[in-house]
């Protein structure tokens, strides 16, 4: 089954809202999971703006703030494997082949296994989550992700009682990626198990109603909206349940600047710059940065009794 859609829209253009909503209604009406999975598999990855995502529902976790235009979200990226300039990932990430793609879920789990990307999509109903994203560099965006809670995946493998942390390993292919050891490759990130299981923690597979562009971490990435952006690992190939706090790439590079937690915190400055304010992409004046990026109500409980200055 193919959904015919005009192919004259370049991916860099923003789909008008009216079209967006039409498509969403249509997709919601379609028999979702089966049709969706078939769609994902059937369509080529380098097509035009036709959606290749299964149906998804809106989420109460979404913010109503103005979304950052798709063009900005897809041309201003930190994905160091494809180059350290903001424009490098959009230029170079096209070399990455994201189909087929599997994610190994291993470590301290009762039922460790490898998931194909199509299986991942069927683990839970997909949701659109419009989240704020705050980069450690002092800029922010509002991004409509599509994905499922990471908890839905972790439940499948039955974490053992000894599992305290989750480590995320991302794709690294030196043939098409940076070889200079700017960071320790492959890029590794990590969360505490309770952070990973938190309902806000998203395994994103889509952006603006379409599959993730490569530069945004296709085909599957993490989105942890209350932490600085670098915690949200892109193009994940392995998820490991472990006992000890993982040694993450940025923490190895500069432990005094990039702590394991890296929760958005306006009161704890990066050693080289203040984190009190941020520039929302598209705006000129800076705005105050919110504690936990504005998600304190949902996540502050995870850190009760912790000194957030020491555990930055």
């Amino acid at each position: 089954m193919l959904i015919k859609r005009p192919t004259d829209i370049s991916p860099s253009e923003i789909t008008p809202r009216s079209l967006f909503e039409q498509r969403r209604h249509f997709l919601l009406g379609a028999s979702s999971a089966l049709a969706g999975a078939a769609l994902w598999a059937a369509l080529p990855r380098s097509g035009h703006a036709a959606s290749r995502l299964p149906a998804y529902a809106p989420s109460p976790f979404s913010t109503s703030e103005e979304k950052t235009p798709l063009k900005a979200v897809t041309t201003y990226n930190n994905f160091y494997e494809f180059g350290t300039d903001k424009s490098d990932p959009a230029e170079n990430a096209g070399k990455m082949s994201v189909q087929p793609w599997t994610v190994r879920v291993e470590g301290l789990a009762g039922k460790p296994r490898t998931f194909g990307i199509e299986e991942l999509l069927k683990l839970a109903p997909l949701e659109e989550r419009i989240y704020r994203l705050r980069c450690v560099e002092g800029w922010s965006m509002v991004i409509p992700w599509v994905g499922l809670p990471l908890a839905a995946l972790l439940k499948q493998v039955e974490p053992l009682g000894s599992a305290k942390y989750v480590e995320f390993v991302t794709h690294y292919d030196p043939a098409i990626m940076l070889r200079r050891p700017v960071l320790s490759w492959p890029y590794v990130e990590g969360l505490r198990l309770d952070e990973a299981l938190h309902p806000l923690t998203l395994l994103a597979v889509g952006l603006y109603g379409d599959v993730l562009p490569n530069q945004n971490g296709a085909p599957v990435r993490l989105v942890v909206p209350w932490k600085y952006g670098f915690k949200s690992a892109k193009s994940i190939v392995a998820i490991r349940l472990v006992e000890k706090q993982p040694r993450t790439s940025w923490n190895r590079a500069a432990a005094d600047e990039y702590g394991f937690y890296s929760n958005v915190n306006p009161e704890v400055a990066h050693p080289r710059w203040s984190q009190a304010t941020e520039r929302r992409i598209g705006e000129l004046r800076k705005r105050p940065t919110l504690m936990f990026n504005g998600y304190g109500e949902q996540v502050a409980g995870l850190y009760q009794g912790m000194d957030l200055k020491a555990n930055y």
Binding site: K71, A72, Y76, K86, I281
Partner: peptide, 12 residues
């Protein structure tokens, strides 16, 4: 700046 071609973060 006038033509808005300085990228997503023109101030930067």
């Amino acid at each position: 700046w006038q033509a808005d071609t300085l990228g997503a973060n023109p101030v930067e």
